[in-house]
C-alpha cells in the first residue's frame, strides 16, 4: 500500500474529529473521501499531509512511518481549497518552489517547470502573477506545483469548490487524465457525491469522524452498507419494513420478495428513484402500488416526481425523458407506481 492510515484518532477538546480511521490507498489509485462538512475529512487530509498530529494511530507512506514527520519530509503534493498560490511570485516561480526547496540544479528546475506547465496546458503563462489568471487557470497552476517534484502522494482538498459548473466538469476530467497519465496515488476530498462518482477508483464515505464504507463507486451506489451511505450517495428512497419468510411488508407496496437468506425482523430497503416506473410502465413491474403526485420537477433528460403512496409514506421517482415525451404526470394526479424486486437493496446496517 502506498498510503496506509491505521487507527487514527484526533480529538479537539471534547470533540472527536476522527474516531479511529483505517484506510489504505494502493499505488496509482484515486481514492476519494466523501463526507458532509464536519465529518472529519479535512482533519484526515491534514493528518496525512502532516499539518495535524493524531492523538492515536499511525500514517504510513510507502511503508515508512511518517506519523510524526513534518510536512516537508513527506514528499506529498497538495492542492488547497483556495489553491494557496504565492501571490507575490510568478506562475513559473510558484511551480519552481518545491524544486528549489529540494535544491535541484537550475537547468533541471527550468526544464521541469516548463514540462509541468505544458502538462496543465499553461505554456507561456510562466511570467504572469496568479491574480492575472482565471480561477480555473490558478487551479491548474496549483496542480502543476503539486506534481512537479514527483510526489509520492497527491492530496486534493475540494479543489473545484469555487469554480462554476462547466469549468468544474472539464477540470475534473483533466485532473483524472493527469492522474492516470502520471500514475499518481491520489487522495481527494469532497462533499460533492457526483464529483466523487465521476473521479474515483474507490470512494470512502465518512460521517462523524468514521469511515462508513469503502468501495468502488458503482458498488457503493448499488450496495450501500449503511443508511448514511445510501442516503448520502445519490438520491434514495429508504423504506422501513418488517421481514418474514423471505418477504418484507412495505407500506404502500404490500409484500415484496427479499434476497434469499434474509433473517426475519426489521429491515431497511433502498430503492433508487430511477428504479420506479409509473402509470402504464408500472403495469409490467412485479411490485406495484398507487400514489398521488405531490410535485414534479423537470430536469431536462429526466423528470423527478414526489409521490404520496396510498398505503402511507412518500417516494421519489426519477423517470427518463426523451425530448418528444410529454410530462409524465400532473401534480395532484393519482397514478400506479411499481418496481422490480431485484432493484431493491437491503441496507445491512439500516
Amino acid at each position: 500500500m502506498e498510503l496506509s492510515v491505521k487507527g487514527i484518532v484526533r480529538r479537539f477538546g471534547p470533540v472527536t474529529a476522527l474516531g479511529g480511521v483505517d484506510l489504505d490507498v494502493a499505488e496509482g489509485e484515486f481514492l476519494t473521501i466523501l463526507g458532509p462538512s464536519g465529518s472529519g475529512k479535512t482533519t484526515l487530509l491534514k493528518t496525512v499531509a502532516g499539518f495535524e498530529i493524531p492523538d492515536e494511530g499511525r500514517v504510513l507512506l510507502g511503508g515508512e512511518d511518517v506519523t510524526l514527520a513534518p510536512p516537508r519530509r513527506r514528499d506529498v503534493g497538495m492542492v488547497f481549497q483556495n489553491y494557496a498560490l504565492f501571490p507575490h511570485m510568478s506562475v513559473a516561480q510558484n511551480v519552481a518552489f518545491p524544486l528549489e526547496m529540494r535544491r535541484r540544479p537550475r537547468d533541471e528546475v527550468k526544464r521541469r517547470v516548463i514540462e509541468a506547465l505544458r502538462l496543465v496546458e499553461l505554456e507561456g503563462y510562466g511570467d504572469r502573477l496568479p491574480r492575472q489568471l482565471s480561477g480555473g487557470q490558478q487551479q491548474r497552476v496549483a496542480l502543476a506545483r503539486a506534481v512537479v517534484f514527483g510526489p509520492r502522494l497527491l492530496l486534493l482538498d475540494e479543489p473545484f469548490g469555487a469554480l462554476d459548473r462547466k469549468l468544474r466538469e472539464s477540470l475534473q476530467l483533466e485532473v483524472r487524465r493527469l492522474q492516470r497519465q502520471l500514475r499518481l496515488t491520489t487522495l481527494f476530498i469532497t462533499h460533492d457525491q457526483e464529483e466523487a462518482l465521476i473521479m474515483s477508483d474507490r470512494i470512502a464515505v465518512m460521517d462523524k469522524g468514521r469511515i462508513e464504507q469503502v468501495g468502488a463507486p458503482g458498488d457503493l451506489y448499488a450496495h450501500p452498507a449503511t443508511r448514511f451511505v445510501a442516503d448520502f450517495l445519490g438520491e434514495s428512497n429508504l423504506l422501513d419494513g418488517s421481514a418474514s419468510a423471505g418477504h418484507a411488508a412495505i407500506p404502500g407496496f404490500g409484500a415484496v420478495p427479499l434476497p434469499a437468506g434474509q433473517p426475519d425482523g426489521g429491515v431497511t430497503l433502498l430503492l433508487r428513484p430511477e428504479a420506479l416506473r409509473i402509470a402504464a410502465d408500472a403495469a409490467a413491474m412485479p411490485c406495484r402500488g398507487q400514489g398521488k403526485v405531490l410535485e414534479t420537477v423537470f430536469l431536462g433528460q429526466s423528470a423527478k416526481l414526489r409521490m404520496a403512496l396510498d398505503g402511507g409514506g412518500e417516494v421519489l421517482a426519477r423517470l427518463p425523458l426523451r425530448p418528444s415525451d410529454p410530462p409524465p404526470a400532473r401534480e395532484g394526479e393519482t397514478v400506479a407506481v411499481g418496481f422490480a424486486p431485484e432493484d431493491l437493496h437491503v441496507v445491512p446496517r439500516g
Binding site: 499539518f51 516537508r72 506529498v76 497538495m78 483556495n82 494557496a84 504565492f86 526547496m101 529540494r102
Partner: peptide, 15 residues
Amino acid sequence: IDPDLSRAAEGLGAP
C-alpha cells in the same frame, strides 16, 4: 496573509 500559504510552502518542502 492566508495561513494556507505557509502551510503550502512547508508541504512543498520548505523548512
